[in-house]
Amino acid sequence: MPEPTTTPANGSKIAVRCTGVTKTFGSGTNAMQALRGVDMDVRIGELLMLVGPSGCGKTTLISVIAGVLRRDGGECTVFENDYQKMSELQTTRFRGKNIGFVFQAFNLIPTLNAEENAAAPLIINGTKRRDAVAKAREVLQQVGFDERMMRSFSTDLSGGQQQRVAIARALVHNPRLIVCDEPTSALDGETGHKVMELMRNLALGTDRALIVVTHDSRIYEFADRIAHMEDGRITSIEESPRTTS
């Protein structure tokens, strides 16, 4: 993969660059334009929050950025790679190596225990099961899991614990971009806070970027920048108090 480009404006390296991205669902009279020309950059080493009312296109945008949905128009590069120029197989493999996911509903496979769930991305990428589980255990330890919890199934874990497994799963294969969709919406305020602290401390690195879609204003403080979306467009991007202070 080529080295990321440098933006002249502030010297930060760019992880994601979207220019005029459009996406329409349906056709004819039923067509619904979810993205109407999104322009946005995500810098390496930053946590960018994407906020806005329901139906404004946040989830569609991170789906396009994560390569799980094809855009209709505009440009979108992730570490200078354009999914539109890749085959479906190449896109899938790129996602497997470079993107980590944290979902609102956790999406842990209920028949796998915590360490097996966390090991899944490595297994998909071809790591042997034993090595993958060993690595997953290391990451689970970092998110505060003890031996008993590592062997627990998701049904035996609290929401906060499940989200920590999901974070471990998103980190285990060292992806360069992590996308999180409403990671705290299913959690109470205190647990949500802890989860965001974990993400900020563990997930952010000098060569990694985080995009968090959220409605939850209680966690805005963890963002480096906050992008406001409305009606399929980015209306403003503000530096968070964390950055300005």
Binding site: L89, T92, G96, N107, I109, I124
Partner: peptide, 13 residues
Amino acid sequence: RYFGTLKAMGATN
């Protein structure tokens, strides 16, 4: 949903 999750995480068809 879990097949979709695996697919998103890089599992090929």
